[in-house]
Nucleic acid binder design. Sequence first.
DNA 1: ACCTGAACACCGTTCAAGT
DNA 2: ACCTGAACACCGTTCAAGT
Lengths: 231, 231
Amino acid sequence: MTAKTFREPLSRERVLATAVRLVDAEGIKALTMRRLAAELGVEAMSLYFYVAGKEELLDGVISTVLDEIVKTSDQADWRAHLRQQFLAARQVMLRHPWAPGLLTTRRTIPGGVYAYFDRIVGTLVDAGFSYHLAHRAIHAFGSMPFGFAQEVFSPAAAGGSLEPDDAEADLAAMAAALPNLTAMVAHEMHGAADPTLGWCDSQVEFEFTLDLLLDGLERYRVASTSDSIAG
Amino acid sequence: MTAKTFREPLSRERVLATAVRLVDAEGIKALTMRRLAAELGVEAMSLYFYVAGKEELLDGVISTVLDEIVKTSDQADWRAHLRQQFLAARQVMLRHPWAPGLLTTRRTIPGGVYAYFDRIVGTLVDAGFSYHLAHRAIHAFGSMPFGFAQEVFSPAAAGGSLEPDDAEADLAAMAAALPNLTAMVAHEMHGAADPTLGWCDSQVEFEFTLDLLLDGLERYRVASTSDSIAG
DNA sequence: ACCTGAACACCGTTCAAGT
DNA sequence: ACCTGAACACCGTTCAAGT
């Protein structure tokens, strides 16, 4: 109300936190230097005092999101431990559905991520994994430590849809052109516990894939330790 | 040499093919309407006669790349068939390392992709998969039908590096801070068949993950058909 | 039908200047 | 130390105009 309104002092943390909030609310396209500055009640050029440029801003934004991933789990068993960890990470990504897409286009990786992966490797090795198998496990997990899987259809969005580009496509024609997909969706809808949720529960699918990987790795681990060819 | 040089007539195919070549050569940032037009010896506005705008151009570019994926395989066994198919797709992605990153940020999917997935589902169902398990398989594969896995470190680039952001970081300090990762890399380098290739062969890792998934799915398939709870 | 030039509303970023 | 205004070199896109 007064002519000179009080303004919270700027800081790198405040810049990044505001950027995350802006992208959550209006999408990644809304994150421009000028727009973010306006959100902070400041001129665009002021931001350059806290971030070197747009690229570093984007790096900082994903760092901020990754920091939300709590890197603790109370499970002792390696399998339960990683499972709980990755599922917790998934909750973070569901709060920031744009984060996977941004993360995969960045080519530099925030430093803290290495400490995170170091702990994962430690968990595996302590459980009897050879370093070789631990390495393969890291690759096999892909993006799951970050709480997301590579979802080709409706990326980063929950609730599966399967409509081709032109939505006005005749359903009968689609059934003829895509008989197997059509039959699959029909079967899945029929057997769904709660059909109002749609035919595809991405949480369930995430856990299925995670367990598929964990089970497969466990098999290799047991085989290698019983053969005593570990290491 | 003459004042009026002959110019190959424009077409949507030529626009998209030139765009792919431009991105292959100079990266995704180089793909602007103005730059692409210059590449075609034309003004930027002429492109709008063939593509509705930048977004449709990007959609067309990934469609063009995906069309390179040959959707045939001479293998009869479902496992060998899909394995060969996905590995062939990987060769396409290695030619266009920017394609995975672009594909995952696109939210519309080119129509032909549905036909491709329909064939995959058909292969699975013919092999005795229930529609339910086929659905899970599609999710588990993630981006592998497109020939790439979610590579967190050095995305889309072959040859693993593991240097944190600040490259001048003391190696001894890194070994202390990241003991497990350091030990893992040391073990892998020691055991590598050809150390000049680096400690990490991403082709081998891709195949390991693919086999891990295929083996796990095969186990479910056998279990469901012998229990005759399929469907 | 196909292509263009000028113009508009945006970008990220530099630089010299303010306090 | 922190913030700004004007300016530069770019964007994608519209629109009226050319052939």
